[in-house]
Design a protein around this nucleic acid. Structure first.
Lengths: 244, 244
DNA sequence: TCAAAAGTGTTCTACTTACACCCATGC
DNA sequence: GCATGGGTGTAAGTAGAACACTTTTGA
């Protein structure tokens, strides 16, 4: 905030976009929603969904709008949080565009609906993207940051439940942790931790009968958003996260 | 990122600023650098230092530039990190301005030099600001978020050392934690934790002789940026942080 | 009765906390 | 000597890891 008038020349207006890293767990794998670019620059390359912020819109609103446009899902059901702004002057060859990245977490979503602009959208395993695929713009960097954020959010918050369709079992929830962190967890210790954390899980009273094995009690998300005590990755898990 | 051309009408350009929450510990109190606004809007009210992002500048560079303009200090010596973007359309009456807030931590700095624009700059105790003073724009919100970020950063990282002029003693460092968290800490347990954390403290071999009492060994910051194991606020400290 | 997954209990270890106590210095 | 922080040691309590074990179902 300076006293300089808004139209002063050296303070150039900047175009602002939001880009979304939408994670879900499908078929026991962490997946991210990517679109295929239909125009230059980076024509044909995969990219994160996103778009320009409109007049009168907050960044959160823009992210919600893009989210529902891309996935057809009401974003209010998903976990959505701001990651950070990316501002390298050369990050977009079209000109000065700053983007604010958002992290969205949701349960296995209906289908990767092609967006309103008829761009192809695909769920893509995160591991394969990090390994082999290079994304448009600086979206590979953003994806990395989002992945690390998601992993650490699982430690300190109850967002893992946002990956599960309700009602869910402790086993469902544990699978989320295992897939996102990329390490196996001890079922009995995991159960103790999540059931002892106040406000994390609320039993529905119902049970789910699997094809085989003992039925599991079903839960919904509790009111708690912070996970106390936190569920920390061990040194091994923290290290495994570096690669995937 | 959409394929829409950059000059399309509904994608309005937006002015982007950076605002800085610069914390230091002076006279046993956590203080924040505030400027007094010299123009409308909010003429005369205290505000966070900041300014417009210029052409060809990253947000980090803009923040560094503002930091050195406001404090006269080479920002490379300070800890500087992006907090988040604030984007309420009505947050600035002059028009559509999004700001990206930065958190800066530094040792007791030379003087609160009036910036290049000759605005008055003052170190102000954070507690008194939260209690009684309302800041321009949404800067009170930003200050709250920054304070909570700083407090939690002390748990998981070694940034507390950024508040100390080198070389410093374990007592100096403990005082930082006590002032920022607002709780007293056990000196002996604190010492054990920070000296056992790999790469946090490097002894200089020198000692400091206080006016009275046993001399203390002096340290510099080690290479570690993550603090393992973390130095967690107890339930009491975490609760105390809510108010201040 | 067997396989499979849910769920319980127990031991061992590591870490935190609280606090007693010693050390080195200026006065 | 004594006051004042610096610094070490230690016992009690707590939380996590590892793993043995029991339960409940379908086939």
């Amino acid at each position: 905030m300076t006293e300089t008038p808004i139209r002063a020349s050296k303070h150039a207006p900047i175009f602002v976009t939001v880009d979304l890293v939408i994670f879900t767990v499908r078929q026991d794998v962490l997946q991210v929603l990517l679109i295929e670019r239909g125009n230059e620059p980076y024509f044909g390359l995969p990219a994160l969904p996103g778009g320009y912020v409109r007049d009168g819109e907050t960044l959160d609103q823009a992210a919600l709008r893009e989210l529902s446009e891309e996935t057809g899902v009401d974003g209010r059901q998903l976990h959505l949080e701001q990651l950070r702004a990316y501002s390298e002057p050369e990050r977009d060859p079209r000109g000065r565009i700053i983007t604010v990245a958002y992290l969205a977490l949701g349960p296995d979503l209906p289908h990767p609906v092609a967006g309103t602009d008829a761009r192809a959208a695909h769920w893509t395993p995160v591991a394969s993207v990090l390994d082999r695929v290079s994304l448009a713009f600086d979206h590979s960097d953003i994806l990395c940051d989002a992945l690390e954020r998601a992993r650490s959010q699982l430690e300190y918050t109850t967002v893992a439940a946002a990956f599960c369709n309700e009602p869910f079992t402790v086993g469902d929830l544990r699978q989320i942790y295992e897939v996102v962190w990329g390490v196996p967890l001890d079922p009995s210790n995991f159960r103790r931790k999540v059931t002892h954390a106040e406000g994390f899980l609320v039993p529905t009273g119902e049970r789910r009968y699997p094809d085989i094995g003992r039925p599991a009690t079903l839960y919904r998300r509790g009111p708690a958003r912070l996970l106390v005590p936190p569920l920390l990755r061990s040194g091994e898990a923290a290290h495994a996260s570096l690669c995937l």
